[in-house]
Amino acid sequence: MSSNPNESAGPVTMMQAPLYLQYRFTAGTSSLSFLHAIKRGRLIGRRCPGCESVYIPCRGSCARCGVATCDNIELTDEGVIDKFTVVHIPIPNNPIKPPFVVAHIRLNGADNAFHHLIGEVDNDKVKLGMKVKAVWRPESEWDYGLDNIRYFKPLGGEHD
């Protein structure tokens, strides 16, 4: 009976079944102004026609009001640290060396915050409410994304 040569090899408890699917991502119509602007090193948010809040980046609606955003609003690359943490966790293949600061940054004139890195300051000197400014990558590296900003650094003299 026992003609199966694998019978003595024990049970199969795990197998690899790699899966590759290709997707052509799209960002959303209202993201276009933001993406085209950041490719040129500029920051464009959008305003809610209801509550007048300004969102950057904007996905097409004011989530609070549930209405489509309308006007494009140009913002500067300066803002404040709304919330932050110092990340120590080592994640394989992470090009960013821990410990590093991840902050919620609210640009001046914007009503929402986005996640980004903080640089050019000791991690233990970072504070809530600290004023920061974007440090951009070289123009030759600019693409359609917030990664064009390498990190945000404290505005000189604003922190103690």
Binding site: T26, G28, T29, L32, S61, A68
Partner: peptide
């Protein structure tokens, strides 16, 4: 639907 995202499809 081109570049329309979830929000733009649903709203």
């Amino acid at each position: 639907a081109g570049c329309a995202n979830e929000v733009e499809l649903i709203m």
